[in-house]
């Protein structure tokens, strides 16, 4: 068992087989730096709980194909990313920090799926981006790459 401590001082015990999906922690264990509690100053307990839930579920991912649990795992992943933007970015930041490649891919793909085919206005609103471009600059950008702005049906809704 490996002990992790969130930045709000909560400790979590995780099986080594699960936690080594994090390259960072795997390296720490290999270097003998994981003997006591591993503090994670960038991750709060709410996010860490999510990450541990993912790690535990994906513990034997390599064997999933053989045991026919792939569909189950896929369903879990779909449910897992069903969260708000802020929570999603918290998990992405945690996955980036802990270097959990699969989790990073999953969450970034989910972020991308939410942005795909969205209109510029919809993306700005979803992510609360303030537009600081002048009209001339906007026109210049469109003129540079008109093809990028005439894509398939552009969706103007924010969900």
């Amino acid at each position: 068992m490996v002990k992790l401590k969130s930045n709000d001082d909560k400790e979590f015990e995780v099986e080594e087989a699960a936690v080594i999906q994090s390259e960072m922690i795997k390296n720490m264990i290999e270097d003998g730096c994981a003997t006591s509690v591993i503090p994670l100053p960038n991750i709060d307990s709410k996010t860490l709980i999510k990450v541990i839930e993912y790690l535990n579920k994906h513990i034997n991912m390599g064997k999933a194909a053989e045991t026919g649990e792939e569909d189950d795992l896929k369903e879990f992943d779909e449910q897992f990313v069903n969260m708000g933007w802020e929570e999603l970015f918290d998990v992405i930041m945690a996955a980036n920090y802990l270097n959990i490649h699969e989790l990073m891919e999953l969450c970034c793909q989910s972020a991308a799926d939410r942005l795909k085919n969205k209109s510029v206005r919809a993306v700005r609103e979803m992510l609360k981006i303030t537009n600081d471009l002048t009209e001339e600059e906007e026109q210049e950008i469109i003129n540079d790459a008109p093809w990028a702005f005439e894509g398939p049906e552009i969706d103007d809704t924010v969900n």
Binding site: A112, V120, V123, T130, A148
Partner: peptide, 15 residues
């Protein structure tokens, strides 16, 4: 993870 067209379109989001 985005199609290239969507990725290029982010150029107009903000500076």
């Amino acid at each position: 993870c985005l199609p290239l067209r969507d990725a290029v379109r982010t150029s107009i989001l903000s500076n």
